[in-house]
Structures are given as structure tokens and as C-alpha cells.
Simulated scan of single mutants.
Amino acid sequence: MPVINFTYDELFKQLGCTLDKKELIDILPMISSDVESYDETEVKAEFFPNRPDYYSIEGIVRALKGYLDIEVGMPEYKVVEGDTTLTVDEELKDIRPYVASCIIKGVEIDDDELKNIMEFQEHLHWVIGRDRKKVAIGIHDYDTVEGPFYYKAGTPDEDKFIALDCNEEESLNQILETHDKGEKYAKLISDYDKYPLIVDSNDNIMSMPPIINSDLTKLTTNTKNLFIDVTGTDLTAVTNALNIIAANLSENADSIECVKVVYPYHDDVTYPQFEPKVLDVHVDTASEYIGMDLTADKIIQTLEKTRFNAQKVDDNTVRVTVPRYRIDILHEV
């Protein structure tokens, strides 16, 4: 299971209050965590693969706020319509056909958060992305590029860029041969005549998914706005990953700006897709499965503490609104 590392100081800062350290260690299992280890400064906690919304400290804090009655009910995010587009190349249909994107405005990134973002990205690569085969994620400094954006098929020996943490411009094939990420993930695209690229309106290459980002868009502690791209072979997985990233990384940001993905072979899609799922929970069914005598009011109170919205329909029915980052919730049971 993924192990999430965080410091007490980092967590308490985002939580907005300080807990006794032992109290925190006792609470974490109540939000589905297995505490692997801890010391005076840091905690290492495991979370199940069906809860990728916990794979960054923002997701953990969001759950703790509910458990501690600091904030209950479904979180609300400021999502603003924008005119940014990401246009998909027809040639990618049989290579890596799907992409999702959004822009997160007004982030504050210190060294701890920079580390958190990188670890969050890699955890999602493993759990949702199946080690990047199904989904790959790019997180960029938005202020280094200019829209509109393009998801295009690049020519391996002609297109060139400076890969992340490198100094020299190389062709796409050279990056596959010389960069450690290129060597590790080349098998995912090397059989194709062209490779996927994310580029901006000035033809700056931002990334070669699922391999490596460009050094041009590297995140730093001066980064204020994020451009997110998620590419993959499965549209549902791509959408789920983008929604989770958008929700978590905007917890401490000003807003999320929508990006419209324009396809030549699929309906256009605007992201993020935060329209919640709505389902009914029945008191008698819940009581039978849990083995307790429950009431609609008690179920509502519990659901709100776990960051759902819930309202009473009748004495046996509670209507539940499920946020889109909770991809583990499939049905009533």
C-alpha cells in the first residue's frame, strides 16, 4: 500500500489547529489509515489502494477536518470557467488517446509541499496509472507557458526539448535512451512511429507523456499557478486522476480554472468534472450490514463527518451526495 509521509508541523498548519501528537496517531486509524511509523517530527501512514484521495497531505487534512467537526459535509471548490483549450491530434487515437487538464490558481509551494506534490504524483502513477501505462500525470508551472495548448504526435528524431533536471536539448529518442525515466518507461511508447507531446501556443514542449516533463515547466517554491495534464489509455481512469488531483491541490489554492479538451475522434470534454454522484442509503439495509440499530439522523451525522452531503428523504431513506474524488463509492452497500 502507498505510504504517505508528512510532518506534524505541515499537517497542523493545514489543519488550522494543533493536536497532541499521540491523539493524532490514535485518530489516523479512524480515517482508514495504518500508521506504519512515527517519531517526534514525522508520520508515515499507509492508505488502501481504493482511496487515492488520501495520497497527499491535503486529502488527509480534509478527512481530519470532518472527523474533528472543523468542517463537515462535502467540500466546495471555486471552479471558474475559462477559455483555455487543449486540442488533441488525430494521430494519437491509436497511441495514447485520452487527456484531461485544468489550471489551479493561487498555490503556495514551500519545500515540504514541493515534495508532497511529487510523491502524490508518483503514488497516483502506481495505483491509478498502473506504473504510467494506463495514466500519466504532468504538473507544470503555468506561468512559464502560454495557451492554447496542444496534445500532439511528435516525431522521435526531429522534435527536441530539455528534459526535467537536464541541461541539454535532446531529441525524443535520445531522451528515451539517456534519461533514467526514458530508459524505464520507453517500452510504453517506443513501438510507435510518433510519441505523445504536450505543447503550448509557442510550440514549447511541456512534456512527453508518459515519460518526462520539460525542464521549462519545472515547479519551484516561486510557482503560483499550476497547469495539470493527465494522459492515458482509459478515459475513466484519466478523468478520475484529474478530479482527484484538482480537488487535493486546490484545497489551499484560490481557484480551479477549467480547460476544454477538443477531440477529433471523441466528444469534447471540459475538466475538472466535479458533478457529484447521488445515491440513496436505506436505514434498514445499513443497520443489517453494520449490525447496529441506526436512524436516518444518525446516518446523516456520520456521513457529514466523512465529507458527504446527506439529507433525509423519509425515515428509511437518506439521499447522499458523493464528491467526485471518492472514486471508491460505487453503490449503496
Rank of each mutant, 00 (worst) to 15 (best):
residue 271 Y to N: 03
residue 83 D to H: 06
residue 123 H to L: 15
residue 292 M to E: 15
residue 297 D to W: 02
residue 134 K to L: 13
residue 86 L to M: 12
residue 4 I to P: 10
residue 60 I to M: 02
residue 76 E to L: 04
residue 32 S to M: 08
residue 33 S to P: 00
residue 198 I to L: 14
residue 125 H to R: 13
residue 202 N to R: 15
residue 328 D to L: 11
residue 234 D to S: 02
residue 321 T to K: 11
residue 293 D to V: 00
residue 106 G to P: 06
residue 41 T to A: 09
residue 23 E to S: 09
residue 314 D to P: 02
residue 333 V to H: 12
residue 68 L to I: 10
residue 158 E to W: 12
residue 274 F to W: 07
residue 23 E to K: 14
residue 28 L to M: 02
residue 108 E to Q: 13
residue 124 L to N: 12
residue 156 P to L: 09
residue 54 Y to W: 03
residue 50 N to A: 07
residue 75 P to T: 04
residue 130 R to T: 15
residue 123 H to R: 15
residue 308 F to I: 05
residue 54 Y to F: 12
residue 79 V to D: 02
residue 331 H to M: 10
residue 209 P to F: 04
residue 317 T to E: 05
residue 85 T to K: 11
residue 110 D to R: 06
residue 20 D to T: 05
residue 20 D to Y: 03
residue 112 D to F: 14
residue 303 L to N: 04
residue 56 S to F: 00
residue 207 S to P: 10
residue 5 N to G: 01
residue 68 L to V: 00
residue 33 S to W: 10
residue 87 T to Y: 01
residue 38 Y to H: 09
residue 187 K to E: 15
residue 10 E to A: 04
residue 269 V to D: 04
residue 69 D to E: 08
residue 7 T to P: 05
residue 67 Y to A: 10
residue 52 P to V: 03
residue 156 P to Y: 11
residue 63 A to Q: 14
residue 207 S to M: 07
residue 159 D to Y: 08
residue 169 E to C: 09
residue 280 D to Q: 11
residue 246 A to W: 00
residue 192 Y to P: 12
residue 231 T to M: 09
residue 288 E to C: 02
residue 8 Y to P: 00
residue 143 D to Q: 15
residue 61 V to A: 00
residue 253 A to R: 06
residue 133 K to L: 15
residue 11 L to C: 10
residue 279 L to T: 05
residue 324 R to K: 12
residue 165 D to V: 04
residue 76 E to A: 04
residue 107 V to I: 13
